[in-house]
Simulated assay, not measured.
Amino acid sequence: MYKINEIFLSIQGESISQGYPTVFVRFTGCNLRCSYCDTKYAYYDGTIYNKDDVIKEINKYGYKRVCITGGEPLLQHNIQDIIDMLKGYEMSIETNGSIDLSQFKLHKNHRFVMDMKVPSSNCSDKMYFKNFDYLKEEDEIKFVIGDRNDYNWSKEIIKKYYKKGLIIFTPIFDIINIKDIVKWVLDDRLDVRVQVQLQKFIWGKNERGV
């Protein structure tokens, strides 16, 4: 059984799949309390599903592209069963960087999107840096940046731990101008992808189910 906050169809607002129609499965519960969290409603609220009902709900939308998110979806008991049932789907799993990824087995066309929590989140000390050893080329590493200190911290983490994967720098919405991040990246000659949260530009920062 799984506690799920919402299942909905939208376009992917972030990551390498940005802009593509995607079915989102937002699981309830998180072990972190980031200062800039935009899904606090997923901390506790949700409905109980069995795994067959989850797949049935996903399939009703007619797309084979799925994003498993939260909260922190990897806290769910038996989440591997859902991962296995989505073999054959294109799937991303958004995880907060604090969970040991080595205990999960992904399939072809599956990838992790690991959101490394920067200092302004107040959760950067909760990161499990060993995860960098487990990421593959197709996985993604996201840094959501709110100020120059966050940017500098992210640079150091990349320098110290990075091995494989696509690196994404995203501004905290309404906190920092993306132009600043672009300037810093270009000045430092970093080979990272700078990206906005597209969904917030389309629907606004407080809209749910999008």
Score class of each variant (00 low, 15 high):
Arg111Ala: 11
Glu94Phe: 04
Asp52Thr: 13
Ile175Ala: 09
Cys37Trp: 03
Lys40Leu: 14
Val210Phe: 07
Tyr43Cys: 01
Tyr151Gln: 04
Asn149Tyr: 14
Ile158Cys: 14
Phe201Asn: 09
Thr69Trp: 01
Asn152Ala: 09
Gly97Asp: 00
Tyr2Phe: 15
Lys155Trp: 09
Asp100Thr: 02
Ile158Trp: 09
Tyr89Trp: 12
Asp188Arg: 01
Asp115Ile: 05
Asp84Met: 01
Ile68Leu: 15
Phe104Pro: 00
Tyr128His: 14
Ile58Pro: 02
Pro119Phe: 07
Ile175Gly: 00
Thr69Gln: 03
Lys117Pro: 07
Asn131Trp: 04
Met91Asn: 05
Trp184Ile: 00
Ser98Trp: 00
Glu57Lys: 10
Pro119Asn: 07
Asp38Arg: 05
His107Pro: 11
Glu57Thr: 15
Glu90Met: 10
Arg33Val: 09
Val210Ser: 01
Gly165Glu: 05
Leu86Asp: 04
Pro171Ser: 06
Ser17Leu: 15
Asp81Phe: 04
Phe112Lys: 04
Phe112Asn: 06
Tyr162Ser: 03
Ser102Lys: 15
Glu14Cys: 06
Glu207Trp: 11
Ile178His: 04
Lys105Ala: 09
Thr69Ala: 03
Thr95Met: 07
Val54Arg: 10
Arg208Val: 09
His77Pro: 12
Trp153Ala: 00
Cys67Thr: 12
Lys200Ser: 10
Ile16His: 01
Val210Leu: 10
Phe169Trp: 11
Gly46Tyr: 00
Tyr2Met: 11
Met114Thr: 13
Asp38Lys: 06
Tyr44Cys: 14
Lys179Ser: 14
Leu166His: 11
Leu75Asp: 03
Phe129Met: 15
